[in-house]
């Protein structure tokens, strides 16, 4: 499988300077690509485009040469966000949010140390680190082929960080999943990635 971005250009307001200009990137299954750039250069924006949340003004996102939007059901490209508290419905119990698109494998909850009791609680009652583990479980559906990790571990303690990355790497290996890893932590990128790219990519 291959996830490809071809010549993506995107700006948030019409007529303003694009955040991304003519960006191309491809990730094959089993590859773990690190992405780094200073703050405000469009790392999250690129993830949003790759996961299909936003439509680029120019360029295309292809999964196995088919446009991403043609895939039905839960999107095979899932994104995990920098701020878990912003991507869960504050008025739903976490169990309901988790089952949004179908049941979640019990093994996943065990591996991520998600307590049964948490599912009965509201997002405001969990710490940032607890919520993020929960967001991971939600994104790792059986149909997920690519995972976009947008600075997913900076809010976790170091032991939990290491646990989660070991789990994710194993899971990616087992399923032949491709990862895009956004982080400011060079040591982390070196540990988990097979190659590292820096924005803006030098265009050929």
């Amino acid at each position: 499988m291959m996830l490809e971005a071809k010549g993506l250009t995107f700006s948030y307001r019409r007529g303003s300077t694009p955040v991304l200009r003519d960006i191309s990137l491809s990730i094959s299954s089993g590859e773990r690509v690190g992405l780094k750039a200073p703050s405000g250069r469009g790392k999250t924006t690129l993830c949003r485009l790759l996961a299909g949340y936003d439509k680029p003004q120019k360029g295309r996102v292809l999964l196995d040469s088919r446009p991403l939007r043609e895939y039905r059901g839960a999107c095979p490209v899932q994104m995990i966000w920098q701020h878990p508290e912003m991507v869960v419905d504050p008025l739903l119990r976490l169990g309901e949010t988790l089952r949004e698109a179908g049941e979640i494998d019990k093994r996943m909850l065990d591996e991520l140390h998600i307590e049964d009791g948490w599912l009965e609680r509201y997002p405001a009652e969990l710490s940032g680190g607890e919520l993020q583990r929960f967001c991971l479980a939600r994104a790792l559906r059986p149909s997920t082929k690519y995972l976009l990790c947008d600075e997913i571990s900076a809010m976790l303690d170091l032991v939990t960080q290491a646990q989660i990355w070991h789990f994710l790497l194993e899971e990616a290996e087992r399923r032949g999943m491709g990862l895009l890893v956004v982080s400011h932590d060079d040591a982390l990128l070196k540990r988990v990635c097979t190659r590292i790219e820096e924005l803006p990519f030098t265009t050929l």
Binding site: L158, Q161, A187, L188, K190
Partner: peptide, 18 residues
């Protein structure tokens, strides 16, 4: 100590459990 060993540059070793 476990936090220290879990740093990516010091081995990235997690202790088990939570």
């Amino acid at each position: 100590k476990a936090l220290w060993y879990a740093m990516p540059k010091h081995g990235f070793k997690p202790v088990q459990g939570s």
